[in-house]
Design a protein around this nucleic acid. Structure first.
Lengths: 259, 259
DNA sequence: CTCGTAACTGTCAGTTCTTGCAGGAGACGA
DNA sequence: TCGTCTCCTGCAAGAACTGACAGTTACGAG
């Protein structure tokens, strides 16, 4: 096989490039919605939905939904508390690979709530589809789903074809929605910690006491306390546990592969 | 445009399906290496490298490297401390979208260390390429890079073509390496926390004291302490800060979209 | 009905954290 | 040279956490 095996007219490459440009250019939620809506049609699906949660607060994370799903289904979904039963959400929350609904439906046939979930989804016009997970560096989590009113066996080829481009597009959608989102809550994303502060915080996250950290870093316990006090002020939190939670969730401390 | 715009002989779809099967079937690091090596050749690149870090410990994360890079370059890379200067690592650590090296090289032309980095990479046979980031739910972070000895302008088309399949494959590689990795340190990934324990931990991560959490949950301060004590034992950590760090890093507390 | 588990509550002693106060040394840019 | 920033240090009081002992209640599985 040669490098040129792919060359010539590969239609998906063109569509792909166009879509990426479109998503990149989108400046607000509506823009993303339009692009995704178009993609959905062009690759032969009927509905799409993109959802993401940003761990601004661990107890009340910020949720973003860009929906091309039937409104009635979404209402029913929420009312039935399907978020915790939906196997596509479970898959996407725990893995990084896309998942074809057919595979999940087959595996979950025996669980009652799950079986009912698939049955009712079908009644609302969601009979087959595929979901793409996206995880971000700050622990934010999103997923893009494409659905069809056609049954599984009719969509097989379309789903296989959409796998690569779908996953790629999901990453761009995620970045786009993050950019839009970041405009709203930038202050929380700034750390501005000094090296020493980050070191102290890191060892705190490892369960060390101030005294122990002092020994490790060769400074006095008092100085460690001083640095950690500055950390809690900079991150605008009330104690070390919350500082650690925020720093880990936002990726401030995760030994620096980045600059 | 119709759904069938893609149908017929789309060579990348076939390659894609084959590769995914191969990665899925890979049972160890060598297996992943073989598959990736083959992909690399088939899509017209000369070198590949996959790296991932698993936040088992925040201070000393576990690093996994599956390398198809020239050994000399890797040695020089480590010796020069390029991990912190490498703009591809920086991009992948902070974003979810793939990045074409040409774009980064253009942006970083003015920074000294970065300019030297690109120059030396070229001398070792890495003149153009593309990198795909993968983030996982537990904060683990990986990246797959494909590189060529050819200059940017000659690889343009190949890079554009490999974008979708590369990103998809990166997710499967990540899952595969995670599966291999999980075999080694499964105990740390098990939480087994009860609902109440997770609730208490969650509020702790929000900076609440035991007394406050007791008020929030309508139970006594003593009971909260009791639950948190159980949490530190189950997670095998020494205090609440470390429990929070581990729970956030491993995704135990991030209000449950999952079951 | 027994067993295991989750959830809940109490007291007490010792350790650690949090927050005030006050101050010094060195690096760096305006 | 001055101001700012980072890093460092001491003391002290009160709040919060940790660990150990000793229980009760509720519920489902076997």
């Amino acid at each position: 096989m040669t490098t040129m095996g792919y060359s010539g007219s590969d239609p998906s490459a063109t569509v792909c490039a166009e879509m990426i440009e479109a998503v990149r250019a989108a400046e607000d939620v509506d823009g993303i919605h339009r692009v995704c809506s178009r993609l959905c049609r062009e690759v032969g699906f009927d509905h799409f939905i993109y959802g993401a949660q940003f761990p601004v607060s661990l107890v009340r994370p910020r949720i973003v939904i860009i929906s091309g799903y039937p409104a009635e289904w979404r209402e029913h979904y929420d009312a039935s508390g399907y978020l915790t039963a939906d196997p596509t959400v479970h898959h996407c929350a725990t893995r990084s690979t896309p998942v074809v609904w057919r595979d999940l439906a087959a595996a979950g046939r025996r669980r009652q709530k799950e079986a009912r979930f698939w049955g009712e989804a079908g009644e609302y016009g969601l009979r087959s589809g595929v979901s793409f997970p996206i995880h971000g560096k700050s622990g934010e989590f999103g997923m893009l789903s494409l659905a069809s009113t056609e049954p599984h066996f009719k969509m097989d080829a379309a789903i296989r074809r959409v796998l690569p481009i779908g996953q790629l597009l999901a990453t761009y959608m995620h970045e786009a929605s993050r950019a839009v989102f970041d405009q709203e809550c930038l202050p929380i994303r700034y750390d501005g910690l000094t090296t020493r502060e980050r070191e102290c915080l890191l060892w705190t996250a490892e369960g060390k006491t101030a005294w122990e950290i002092g020994n490790i870093l060769g400074i006095s316990e008092r100085t460690v306390v001083f640095h950690l006090k500055n950390v809690t002020e900079k991150l605008n939190v009330t104690n070390r546990a919350q500082a650690v939670a925020r720093a880990v969730a936002c990726g401030y401390i995760q030994p620096r592969l980045s600059r």
